[in-house]
Design a protein around this nucleic acid. Structure first.
Length: 579
DNA sequence: GGATGTTCATAATA
DNA sequence: CTATTATGAACATC
């Protein structure tokens, strides 16, 4: 099914100053203010990482007079309440809030050192990964709970997003709870593209519960926030929502960069009531991102040569072996190497693997697998995937239903064996040689592809390397990144890392010198967005699982995929093995 | 299947 | 301080 993108009528806007008090103190002499350093930080006491973040931040931000906002050298904007408000703020409340109120300070972070930028990017990535895996877990738990109820009308499903947000907030896992950070998000990618977007954003208020305009909007709340942001030159971060058919959820939200508020006006609409309109103009010098990339990727998918007249070497290096085409793109040199190899959709094991150790056979769930399923028991009494085929949590091994099972082909427990679902392209780059990227948005936990080749036993591999060949991949050298997917140790105190089903040390190698698939073109990264999950389905030899690759986070189209090949030093950072 | 209604957690405001 | 209102997202239902 083809994902379809439809733009939302109005973009969502966040990151603006929202302050109903026009007399909020605006003048803060730099020398006197220590408002930032004096701010309490949430959760820093019990979590070393977080106190370290705040420690880093404080050294990088500064407090300035708000009149200097337009100064390009300005490091931070901090608005501090005037004397009267300060006195109010200092009154010790007689009740205890669950969370301290968020500070009204606006902070701009700039001139990050490369290590700091890397640190923040990794922190955000980990937080997103935790959110995404928790979301899948909570949704599944809730469905299970509801399925146990026999009531006539099942209660509405609890909102997993809200529940996960609460869980993470309770444990101090939200980022930037204490300060409001404005400006560009650290961790973007260098580029000079500018889509020149202009947005006319309609303010809020004056509507009844049927979303009909029944009164004039007022310059308050978010509307006032927009006006104040324009006045002080505080940029607005724009997030666009799209309907996304073919995905698990029904909508996706993408960050589209920072916009400046050019002007605003009050306008009488068809209803006869006035609404505020804000003209937002995308700031220059930002990379192409978000919805622009999504649209571009859609265009490539439907008409590759139209969208990119130069560079496509092949429109399917799998030669119809995959259910979806695998493009080959090179617009920087004449290298066409990936065409030279036989393409194999799944790994070929030595024949003895299929004949040995057929323990147990398959399940007998002719109608469809339930919790009592034999294969579920092999996975520790639970299914590995949710209804959308997303991996629930990484394990040493996952056993899918297979040819010996009685369940139908659409059984939930058959995912990775069905092969590639997204459109990928192998592409040439200056930095990484060959790389792999998707033209679809890949949701966290989704299956990507198998890492295929020809399996060599330890003995065969020794002979192979003696002949001077160096195109072997060793499964036991991949970093154990599966453990990070569904790692709830920060959320549940009794969380233990999955150790079942346990597997023996893997002593085979994969030869990609003649036969391979797109996986071996993936680059190495110490902070990968793809991980290896071992899976078995077509035999029962625990020493020879399939190497299946899953998404560690939501991966936007055209973002390079990366794997942790482990074995530090053997490959330089971001070097694909198949170069 | 698209429109409409309900529910949720939270923040702002009365 | 509590109570009410407003908000947008996700889900259920029409």
């Amino acid at each position: 099914m083809e994902p379809k993108l439809e733009p939302r009528d109005e973009p969502l806007v966040s990151g603006f100053l929202q302050n109903p008090n026009p007399n909020y103190g605006l003048k803060v002499p730099v020398a006197e203010s220590n408002a930032v350093n004096g701010t309490r930080t949430n959760g820093s006491d019990e979590n070393n990482d977080r106190s370290e973040i705040n420690g880093n931040l404080e050294s990088m931000i500064d407090v300035i007079d708000v009149d200097e906002v337009m100064d390009p050298d300005a490091l931070a904007i901090v608005l501090v309440p005037d004397e009267e408000d300060n006195q109010l703020a200092n009154v010790e409340p007689s009740y205890r809030r669950k969370f301290p109120p968020r500070s009204a300070e606006l902070v701009r972070v700039s001139n990050l050192e490369i290590e700091d930028e890397r640190y923040f990017r990794e922190l955000v990535r980990k937080t997103r990964t935790l959110y995404d895996s928790l979301w899948i877990y909570v949704t599944l738990e809730e469905d299970r709970r509801r399925s146990l109820l026999d009531g006539p009308v099942p209660r509405a499903r609890v909102r997993a997003d809200l529940k996960v947000a609460s869980m993470m907030r309770d444990r101090g896992l939200w980022l930037n709870q204490d300060k409001r950070i404005v400006g560009p998000i650290p961790g973007g990618y260098e580029d000079d593209e500018d889509s020149g977007d202009v947005i006319i954003y309609t303010g809020h208020g004056g509507q009844d519960k049927n979303s009909r305009q029944v009164a004039h909007q007022k310059l308050e709340g978010g509307n006032l926030g927009m006006e104040r942001s324009m006045h002080h030159g505080v940029e607005v971060r724009v997030v666009r929502g799209f309907k996304y058919k073919g995905g698990a959820g029904d909508k996706v939200y993408v960050y589209d960069g920072i916009y400046k508020i050019d002007e605003y006006w009050f306008e009488i609409g068809k209803s006869g009531f006035g609404v505020y309109k804000f003209k937002l103009v995308r700031m220059e010098g930002q990379p192409e991102m978000g919805s622009a990339i999504l649209k571009f990727a859609e265009n490539i998918k439907t008409n590759p040569l139209g969208a990119r007249p130069v560079g496509y070497v092949s429109l399917d290096i799998s030669r119809n072996k995959e259910k979806v085409p695998v493009f080959l793109f090179n617009d920087i040199d004449d290298n066409h190497d990936p065409l030279e190899y036989d393409y194999q959709v799944t790994t070929i094991f030595p024949s003895f693997v299929y004949h040995n150790a057929r323990n147990g056979g398959g399940c007998n769930c002719s109608g469809g697998c339930t919790v009592d399923c034999l294969c579920a028991k092999k996975n520790g009494g639970e299914f590995a995937y949710d209804i959308n085929g997303r991996l629930i949590k990484g394990k040493p091994l996952i056993i899918e239903c297979g040819p010996l099972c009685s369940c139908p082909p659409n059984c939930w427990n058959r995912v990775s064996q069905k092969g590639v679902r997204n459109t990928f392209e192998v592409f040439r780059s200056m930095e990484t040689g060959w790389g792999v990227r998707s033209l679809d948005l890949i949701q966290a936990g989704s299956f990507i592809c198998e890492y295929t080749g020809v399996v060599l036993t330890r003995e065969q591999a020794q002979v192979f390397t003696m002949n001077g060949e160096d195109t072997l991949v060793y499964p036991n050298r991949f970093g154990e990144r599966w453990a990070e997917w569904g790692d709830f140790s920060q959320v549940f105190s009794d969380y233990v890392r999955p150790s079942y089903p346990s597997i023996p040390p893997l002593e085979f190698a994969i030869d990609v010198s003649k036969i391979r698939n797109l996986a071996c073109y993936m680059s190495h990264s110490p902070c990968p967005n793809v991980f290896v999950q071992l899976v078995m389905y077509d035999h029962s030899n625990f020493g020879f699982p399939h190497l299946m690759l899953f998404a560690m986070e939501n991966i936007p189209p055209l973002r390079e995929l990366s794997l942790d090949y482990g074995a530090a030093g053997e490959w330089t950072e971001k070097l694909a093995i198949c170069n």
